[in-house]
C-alpha cells in the first residue's frame, strides 16, 4: 500500500515536472528547426538536422544589442528603486508608531486587488502628460513602488522582535542605521527573493514597454521579439531562437538563487 502511494506520488511529481519543462523543450527544439518543420503535423520533437544558424540570423534581425542594454538599464533601475522605497515603507509599517498606520496599510493592501491591466491606461495618460513616453522614465517610473514587495518585507521585518529594535536604539543606532545595519542584513533571504522576483518580472515585462515605447531605440528585449511577427506570418524558428537568448540570463539567475526565492515566498505566506 505504502509502495503504491509512493509510486503515485512520484508519478504526479514527474508529470508536473514534464508539464513545466515541456514549453522550454519545445522552444529549444523549435529554435533549431527548419521553417517547414516548425509547422509540420504531426509535430517534430527532434529536428532532423540542427539549424544553429537560426541564432545568428535571429540576432541580426533586429538591434538586439540595443534592446539588451535597455532591458538591463530598466531592470536594474526599477529593481534597485523599488527595493529602496519598499524597504523604507516596510520599516515604517513594521517598526514605527504613527497615527493612521493600520488604516494606511489597509488602503495599500486594497490596491493589491486592482488588476494591473486596469492601471495601464491611467498610467499611460499620466506619463504622456509628463512627456515621458518613449523615454526610460516611462519604462521605470511606474515600477518604483510595489506594495507586494512592501507587504512581503513587512512580514519579515515583523519577525524581528521589537526588543532587537530597542536594543539597537540603546546601542546608539538611529532608525536609519538600525534599518541598514541590522534589519536589512537580518532579512537578507527575503530581500534576495523579492529582488529576484522583481528582476525576472521586470526583464520579462512586455505589455507596458510595448505601450509606452514606439521608438526602436527604446524597446526592451521581450518587445523586440515582435520583429519575427510580420503581416506575412510568424517565423517560429527565429522567434524561438531569439526567445532562448532573451530568457537565458533569467534562467541563470533563477538557478543560482532558487533557494532564496522559495524561502522568500514561503515566509510571506503569499504565492507569487
Amino acid at each position: 500500500m505504502k509502495k503504491v502511494a509512493s509510486v503515485l506520488r512520484y508519478l504526479i511529481l514527474t508529470l508536473g515536472a514534464i508539464i513545466m519543462i515541456l514549453p522550454f523543450f519545445w522552444m529549444l527544439s523549435t529554435s533549431l528547426k527548419t521553417q517547414p518543420e516548425t509547422i509540420q503535423l504531426p509535430p517534430v520533437w527532434i529536428p532532423k538536422s540542427l539549424q544553429w544558424g537560426n541564432y545568428v540570423e535571429a540576432f541580426k534581425a533586429a538591434p538586439f544589442g540595443r534592446y539588451f542594454v535597455n532591458s538591463v538599464i530598466v531592470t536594474v533601475v526599477t529593481t534597485i528603486g523599488q527595493l529602496f522605497t519598499s524597504i523604507l515603507a516596510a520599516f515604517a509599517f513594521s517598526k514605527l508608531r504613527f497615527w493612521g498606520r493600520n488604516l494606511l496599510f489597509m488602503i495599500f493592501l486594497g490596491t493589491m486587488m486592482i488588476p494591473g491591466e486596469m492601471l495601464i491606461i491611467p498610467n499611460f495618460v499620466t506619463l504622456s502628460n509628463m512627456h515621458l513616453v518613449n523615454t526610460y522614465g516611462a519604462l521605470i517610473l511606474p515600477w518604483l513602488a510595489s506594495f507586494f514587495t512592501v507587504f512581503t518585507l513587512r512580514q519579515t521585518f515583523n519577525s524581528v522582535s521589537d526588543q532587537t529594535y530597542y536594543a539597537a536604539k540603546i546601542d546608539g543606532a538611529s532608525d536609519w542605521k538600525f534599518l541598514w545595519h541590522i534589519l536589512v542584513p537580518m532579512s537578507k533571504s527575503t530581500i534576495t527573493a523579492v529582488t529576484v522576483l522583481q528582476v525576472i518580472g521586470s526583464w520579462n515585462s512586455f505589455m507596458w514597454p510595448l505601450i509606452v515605447t514606439n521608438d526602436e531605440n527604446m524597446r526592451t528585449l521581450p518587445v523586440g521579439l515582435q520583429a519575427f511577427t510580420t503581416d506575412a506570418g510568424t517565423n517560429f524558428a527565429l522567434l524561438m531562437a531569439a526567445s532562448t537568448f532573451v530568457i537565458i540570463p533569467m534562467v541563470v539567475v533563477y538557478i543560482f538563487l532558487q533557494k532564496y526565492i522559495i524561502a522568500g515566498i514561503s515566509n510571506s505566506g503569499l504565492k507569487g
Binding site: S161, Q163, T164, Y166, A167, A168, K169, I170, G172, I182, P185, M186, K188
Partner: peptide, 21 residues
C-alpha cells in the same frame, strides 16, 4: 532625554543579539 542620551546599557530577556553579526 532618550535612552541614548541617558547612556544606559540594557540586557533584554531574549538577549536581542544581532544574529547576523
Amino acid at each position: 532625554e532618550d535612552a541614548l542620551a541617558r547612556k544606559v546599557g540594557m540586557v533584554f530577556q531574549n538577549y536581542a543579539l544581532y544574529p547576523h553579526l
